[in-house]
Measured scan of single mutants.
Amino acid sequence: GYDPNALYCICRQPHNNRFMICCDRCEEWFHGDCVGISEARGRLLERNGEDYICPNCTI
């Protein structure tokens, strides 16, 4: 089920109804503003069928 207190992202904070994006490599969720991806950019990636790779996986 959905846990509203689950911690995500590099900031280890809950979802808090903020835009989030999922890394296509590790499948962890990240707040867009923490990883520099706007909601519009996230939608563009999705539309173009491009993967989002998080900072942890791009090292």
Rank of each mutant, 00 (worst) to 15 (best):
R25D: 09
E39R: 09
Y52Q: 04
E39D: 06
Y2L: 15
C11N: 01
Y8R: 13
Q13D: 11
E46K: 13
Y2W: 15
N5T: 03
R47P: 15
E50P: 12
D24M: 12
D51M: 03
N48D: 05
W29K: 15
V35W: 02
R41D: 15
R12E: 09
D24H: 14
I53N: 15
Y52D: 02
C22R: 13
C22D: 14
C22S: 11
D51V: 02
R25F: 08
F19E: 03
D3K: 13
N56F: 01
N17V: 03
A6E: 03
P4F: 15
Y2N: 15
D51Q: 14
E46P: 05
G49K: 14
I10V: 07
A6C: 02
L7Y: 10
R41W: 02
S38F: 04
M20H: 03
I21E: 02
W29C: 12
P4S: 13
T58F: 04
G49M: 10
Q13V: 08
A40V: 06
G49D: 03
Y8L: 12
T58A: 13
G49A: 12
E28M: 08
G49S: 14
C9I: 01
P4N: 09
R41N: 15
W29A: 14
H31A: 01
R41I: 06
S38C: 05
R47S: 11
E46W: 04
C23W: 00
H31T: 00
I21N: 02
A6F: 05
L44D: 08
G32N: 05
E28R: 10
D3N: 14
C11D: 03
C26E: 01
L7A: 14
Y52F: 10
T58W: 01
C26F: 00
R43G: 13
R12T: 07
E50T: 11
E46A: 14
G1R: 06
T58N: 07
L45W: 06
W29S: 14
S38I: 14
A40C: 14
G36H: 07
R47Q: 03
W29G: 09
G36D: 11
L7R: 10
M20L: 09
C9T: 01
E27P: 10
L44M: 11
C11S: 00
C34D: 03
E46N: 10
R18M: 14
R43E: 14
N5R: 04
E50L: 05
Q13S: 06
C9Q: 02
C22N: 11
C54Q: 03
R18E: 09
G36S: 10
E46I: 04
N16Q: 11
C22H: 12
F30L: 10
I59D: 15
P55Y: 04
C11T: 01
I10D: 02
E28W: 09
R18C: 08
N17C: 06
I10W: 05
I37N: 07
L45T: 07
Y2C: 11
Y52H: 02
C26W: 02
F19H: 12
G49W: 02
F19S: 06
Y8Q: 09
P14D: 03
D24R: 14
P4C: 12
E27S: 09
I53V: 09
E39W: 06
I59M: 11
C22A: 13
G1N: 13
F30P: 01
C54N: 01
G1V: 15
C54R: 00
G1I: 14
R25S: 09
F19Q: 12
C22F: 14
R25L: 08
R43H: 14
N5D: 10
I53T: 14
D3P: 14
N16H: 13
I21A: 06
R12A: 06
G1Q: 05
Y8M: 12
N56V: 06
G1C: 14
Q13T: 13
C34M: 00
P4T: 06
A6M: 13
N17W: 03
L45D: 10
N56I: 04
I37K: 14
P4G: 06
G32E: 11
C23I: 01
W29Y: 12
N56R: 06
C23Y: 00
C9D: 00
D24F: 07
D51S: 12
G42V: 12
D33S: 08
R41V: 12
R43Q: 12
C22E: 11
W29L: 15
Y52L: 09
N5S: 04
C23T: 00
V35H: 04
D3A: 01
R12Y: 03
F19M: 04
W29M: 14
R18Q: 11
E28D: 14
P4I: 06
A6N: 11
N5Q: 07
C11K: 02
L44P: 13
R18G: 13
A40P: 06
D24V: 15
R43T: 08
S38R: 06
E39G: 04
P14Q: 13
L45I: 04
Q13Y: 05
I21W: 02
N16A: 06
G49N: 13
D24W: 04
I21R: 06
N16V: 08
D51I: 06
D33I: 03
E46C: 14
